[in-house]
Design a protein around this nucleic acid. Structure first.
Lengths: 195, 195
DNA sequence: GTCTTATGAATGCGTATTCATTCATTTTTC
DNA sequence: GAAAAATGAATGAATACGCATTCATAAGAC
């Protein structure tokens, strides 16, 4: 078995266990069991428990950013770009539930217990939205009076909270795609120049 | 010193300490120190560490709900109600930073480590928004095609994420009131019937 | 036969919780 | 009204235990 396989197996196991129990309640032995390795093996690939969480963030958000930037390159209409971002974000949360839970819960409070860790990757992801807003304003499609910094947070927050609760609650009277559509509709008609 | 004073002092100390360190990294002795009582005294008022957190949620969100429902009763225009809700929510986060941090961070992941705890108070708060949407739809001011369940989450998520980052980042190029205004503007123009 | 990778029992640290003790206040007794 | 007895709130050192991390040993690779 190659080295990289174990690294990946442990990360994947950690996603599952952190999603289920949360970072603090998760035991190293839980992750080891889930990854089918010995407890000690984990320390051959990671320095400590925090290191697993940080590696997980960096690697997984890295992949997501690559994906979304690729999608954005294929589109030029800012309105369509917002729609695509929304749909892609929500689908991601649906397809990778466990990862979504870890990112939503643990990522945000990580700066509480890991003082030194600044999550630049996360900022980079959300800044994809402000870039779209900026582009739309340049092109005169979006109102100049909007603050891109407010918009990106509001838009991201709307998507994230909606998908978070969609994943949590067992019964839904709407699909992920419908929710993404409604949210991007609201925001798009909310930021268009009056014409 | 009356009994109730100690209870309150401990809750207030817990808000400060949980905000600073997060629930798990917070030590009972930290809370005791902050509240200027002995470690053991805390166990005269609360069963355990979790109980402090739960009591804190129940009591503080209870107050917030009372406040916001009172505000809503004074207004009848659904658009104005959304504006007021937005502004009130954001101001709350600004005025009570520490409480805001605890609610935003710990409340959400509490169901991870406290299986049995269902946060009905939080749901009640967010449902204030869906009630407004419903009212607006009844009166024909808001589009019927919107799902109140999606809207409430999107609206709340937008407010919450924006205020969360406003509180975290040291420099702002906009005020809380401006952000609240922009967000309610976006959502209101996004859900109006086309007329 | 050496070097690498993996194991999991043993270690030790950190901290939630307990509980014997203190002490201020209230109640009872004469 | 003074002395004695009872109360229970508050204390904080001691306890107990969960779990991250280590490391002596084993298994596998070449």
């Amino acid at each position: 078995m190659r080295t990289s396989d174990k690294h990946t197996k442990i990360i994947e196991a950690a996603i599952t266990v952190f999603a289920r129990k949360g970072f603090f309640s998760a035991r190293i032995s839980d992750i080891a069991k889930e990854a089918q390795v010995a407890d000690g093996t984990i320390y051959l690939y990671f320095n400590n428990k925090y290191d697993i969480l940080i590696s997980l963030f960096e690697e997984e958000i890295g992949k997501i950013i690559l994906e979304v930037k690729l999608l954005m390159e294929k589109e030029s209409d800012p309105r369509r770009m917002l729609q695509i971002f929304a749909l892609h974000h929500m689908q991601l949360m649906e397809e990778k539930r466990e990862l979504a839970e870890v990112l939503q819960m643990e990522l945000r409070q990580s700066n509480k217990f890991m003082k030194e860790y600044r999550n630049t990757k996360f900022i980079e992801y959300v800044d994809v939205v402000s870039a779209i807003v900026h582009k739309g304003q340049e092109e005169g499609v979006f109102r100049k009076s909007l603050l891109p910094g407010v918009f990106k947070r509001a838009f991201f927050g709307a998507l994230d909270e909606t998908s978070r609760l969609w994943v949590l609650s067992p019964d839904h009277n709407y699909t992920i795609a419908e929710a993404a559509q409604q949210i991007s509709d609201i925001f798009i008609s909310g930021i268009m120049t009056d014409s």
